[in-house]
Nucleic acid binder design. Structure first.
Length: 299
DNA sequence: CCCCAGGTAGGGT
DNA sequence: ACCCTACATGGG
């Protein structure tokens, strides 16, 4: 456990000195879809019914739209500021030295503690889709079915809609939101949310040895959720970190660093990664994803 | 016109 | 367990 992040309060907002936390990389590593880059380079995001602006410069982080008490009771946990990432990185490098390159490009990424319901819906939308379109769809369902939030920050901000609000959407409604063939999946996922939520709460409460596997199986009963989406929902929406979502970018990164010659199925890659990284697999995956996206798109 | 994007389902072997 | 293809939509 790390020391509490050092916070100063001034009239512009909160100044956070959290060494090892890079908010911009964290916003861009694919874990969240509602942090939007502003014209001045800062990011504004909506989390539950809160709106926050984050500016990162000169090793300092300026937070606007919150208070010291809300920071301590909510945002510090949301941004995962109590986790020791130095220790995670050391463990990962010890287990697989080849991950060093990915860690140095993704250094500063934190895995946020996000709302399970929002993650559940967002990652069903994410399948075979691209990040900017996913963000657009989530923004429009928030504007249409969420609540307009009061905020001192510029712009209009809407909460992610509650389960009851999305329950009224038909397949046709979803199609009009441009989710394409995922429309029937979303209708049935919204309908089965309550049951899944009960199951996952029991699983997380029991903390059984195979709770991660049980959660994954529970998720994959829902149409539209396969191994990749299930592991994303677990990594970003639950405390489970022993998962390894494999998408096109992570597959490229694994082929490049781990298995440069020859083919391997996703299932085998996932088994290998879980065996190699164990409880830290989710963090390894985030470094690999971030690195692959910045490296392979520019070369 | 093609290929691609934080994949999955359904069919076949 | 693995391979194949269809699937909406928009961007390059």
């Amino acid at each position: 456990m790390q020391n509490n992040p050092i916070v100063e309060v001034n009239k512009n907002g909160l100044i956070l000195n959290a060494k090892g936390f890079d908010p911009y990389k964290s916003f861009e590593c694919g874990q969240c879809f509602r942090w939007q880059r502003q014209p001045d380079g800062s990011y504004t995001g909506v989390v539950s019914s809160r709106v926050l602006n984050v500016r990162s410069e000169n090793q300092k982080i300026l937070l606007k739209g919150t208070s010291l008490s809300e920071f301590q009771s909510f945002w510090a946990h949301y941004f995962d500021l109590y986790t020791n990432y130095d220790a995670i990185q050391k463990r990962l490098i010890h287990k697989a030295p080849w991950i060093k390159t990915a860690i140095s490009s993704g250094n500063g990424i934190h895995v946020f503690h996000q709302d399970l319901w929002e993650i559940f819906i967002s990652f069903i939308i994410s399948s075979n889709n691209n990040i900017s379109r996913i963000s657009q769809i989530i923004e429009s369902i928030s504007q249409l079915f969420g609540e307009k939030l009061a905020s001192s920050l510029p712009g209009q901000w809407f909460s992610f809609p509650k389960p009851a609000s999305l329950k009224q959407l038909t397949e046709k409604d979803w199609r009009e939101l441009n989710v394409g063939y995922r429309a029937p999946y979303l209708v049935s996922a919204v309908a089965s949310w309550h049951l899944f939520y009960q199951e996952v709460n029991e699983i997380l409460h029991l903390k059984g040895k195979d709770s991660t596997l049980t959660t994954s199986r529970s998720l994959q009963k829902i149409p539209g959720i396969g191994p990749k989406v299930a592991s994303c929902i677990q990594l970003f929406g639950t405390p489970q970190r022993d998962v390894f979502p494999i998408d096109v970018w992570v597959r490229r990164a694994m082929m490049h660093f781990y298995n440069p010659s020859g083919k391997q199925s996703d299932l085998q890659l996932q088994k290998d990664a879980l065996h190699l990284f164990g409880d830290d697999a989710g963090f390894a995956q985030q470094y690999l994803f971030f690195h692959a996206r910045s490296y392979f798109t520019k070369h």
